[in-house]
Amino acid sequence: MNQPIVMSDMERRELLWKRIHRVLPFLSLGLLLALWVYVSQGENARFPSPGATWDRFLLIMRHPIKGLTIFGHVWASLQRVCIALICAWLFGIAFGILTGWYRKSDSLLTPLFTAFRSVPPLAWIPLITIWFGLGEFPKILLVFIGSIPAIVVNTHAGMRFVQKIYLDVGTMFNANARQKLFKIAIPSALDAIFAGIRTSTSAAWMVVLAAEMLGGKSGVGFLIIRGMDSLDMPLVLLSMIFIGLVGALLAIITQLTELLLCPWTRKQSN
């Protein structure tokens, strides 16, 4: 039975727009590529063409820079980010719970932290360089400083604004202070904590580039500086593309982890 579908003009227009919305992302991607080709045309173009960038990719795979291919450099940056993030999460979540849950430590510590987090992480570079030189530790420390505010602020907010009714349920069942903290407050703050994890991850990925520009022999930040110093713009652009891809990948991974660990945050589908 093939019944004709009855639709008003308005509905037909809605349907059309729905289809257009599905195509639009691809359209914008296509536009970006076209723009790229356009600006990189001509003899004295100041922008590397897609072809040149692809060639640079093949070159770095055959002739690694400082012994590392592009993937090696990405991995070097990721390692720094991972170590710094794990420290930042452990410390940040603990600190956020401490200040979000206990009023006294909130009044005592939060003003200090607010002052600390209003200083951009890059402002620490001179001091950190004087204290710790240019090795691996100062880079990781810088990433740590850059990623700590997001996780602390989110955990703090999650713990501070636990819905009263959940705590009332605890009171009613005569839960003690420890049970209220671990069985009610922390679980209810988990989605806020995960928001902090997401934000701190992207912050860490930004700061690691700056940290690697300080000097060193590996990392995507190093590649960018290297490309700038030798006027190798295809290398710069290639690094930028990888930075974007890895950043997006990190965002997706943290999102999936959240869905896996906190299945209740998955919103109702209908």
């Binding site: 009332d168 349920v169 009610i184 679980p187 906190c262 209740w264």
Partner: peptide, 14 residues
């Protein structure tokens, strides 16, 4: 003592 609240009070994470 047990209490059934007016607002939904089931824990969303359980």
């Amino acid at each position: 003592l047990a209490f059934v609240f007016q607002e939904p009070s089931a824990f969303p994470w359980l």
